[in-house]
């Protein structure tokens, strides 16, 4: 059971969305039109660009029939410190970001 207003809201929203889609397809300027209409573009405003994955056709691992001469070093994750970009990220509790040595000493002690 739906409220009568639900049907009306859906009809209005669907009609508006379709009209915008048709208009933008005709204008060939989909994004500008949609931006005016406070559409999904606004949800991406924090990045300024539509997010698109890179190198998608490589996504995930593939199989190979080759061997490797790369030797897996016997690194012990329990004694290693993350040394990647996590340290560049601001952290509210620490000016130097996440992934600090202190945190690991705490865990290993």
């Amino acid at each position: 059971m739906n409220k009568p207003s639900t049907a009306a809201a859906l009809a209005f929203a669907l009609g508006t969305s379709l009209a915008l889609a048709t208009a933008s397809a005709q204008a060939g300027e989909m994004k500008d039109t949609m931006k005016d209409a406070k559409d999904m573009e606004s949800m991406e405003k924090c990045f300024g660009v539509a997010l698109k994955g890179k190198n998608d056709c490589k996504a995930g691992a593939g199989t190979s029939c080759a061997g490797t001469s790369k030797i897996d070093y016997q690194g012990n994750a329990w004694s290693l410190v993350p040394e990647g970009t996590c340290a560049e990220t601001a952290s509210p509790t620490s000016p130097t970001g996440f992934g600090q040595l202190e945190a690991f000493e705490e865990i290993s002690s």
């Binding site: 490589k58 996504a59 995930g60 691992a61 593939g62 190979s64 061997g67 490797t68 001469s69 790369k70 030797i71 897996d72 070093y73 690194g75 994750a77 290693l80 410190v81 993350p82 040394e83 990647g84 970009t85 996590c86 992934g99």
Partner: peptide, 28 residues
Amino acid sequence: NNVTVSLIDALADTYPVTQTLVGERFFR
């Protein structure tokens, strides 16, 4: 090595940003 490295490489292929966040040594 073939088994372990190829499987670690497989994870590195699927999780590139995860690897970048903590660095290759830690990730592997």
